[in-house]
């Protein structure tokens, strides 16, 4: 099974070097080939399972509670100024 590594990397927002693209292509191709063994199973009529346990909404009373505050929220920001995150321009 051939896989378009560059397209998947683009969707995953990861820049690949030419060397990585080639190496990953070979390795992931081998892994997909192994994964193809699932096609030998008949899964018609089998329910898909996303979680081991039943997942349901858990709610708590809608009351305010203490949050992080400025220091903790910004503690790990790679770029910040005047108590705000600096982001890359999104809108022209």
């Amino acid at each position: 099974m051939d896989m378009d590594v560059r397209r998947a990397a683009e969707l995953a927002r990861i820049e690949l070097t030419a060397d990585e693209a080639e190496r990953f292509g070979g390795q992931l191709g081998k892994i997909l080939e192994y994964i193809d063994k699932l096609n030998s199973l008949d899964v018609s009529g089998v329910d898909a399972m996303a979680h081991a346990n039943a997942v349901y909404d858990v709610t708590r009373p809608d009351e305010s509670r203490p949050g992080f505050g400025l220091e903790k929220a910004l503690r790990n920001a790679p770029r910040k100024t005047a108590d705000q995150f600096i982001v890359t321009k999104v809108v022209e």
Binding site: M3, V5, R7, A8, A9, L11, A12, I14, F24, L28, I31, I35, L38, N39, L41, V43, V46, D47, A48, M49, A50
Partner: peptide, 24 residues
């Protein structure tokens, strides 16, 4: 990259959905 691929349009049913069924 592999995870993105198995969830991507055109491959979701063949990989991700099938795997969830085998998980059952």
């Amino acid at each position: 990259i592999l995870g993105t691929y198995v969830l991507s349009s055109g491959y979701y049913d063949a990989y991700y959905l099938r795997a969830q069924k085998v998980r059952t």
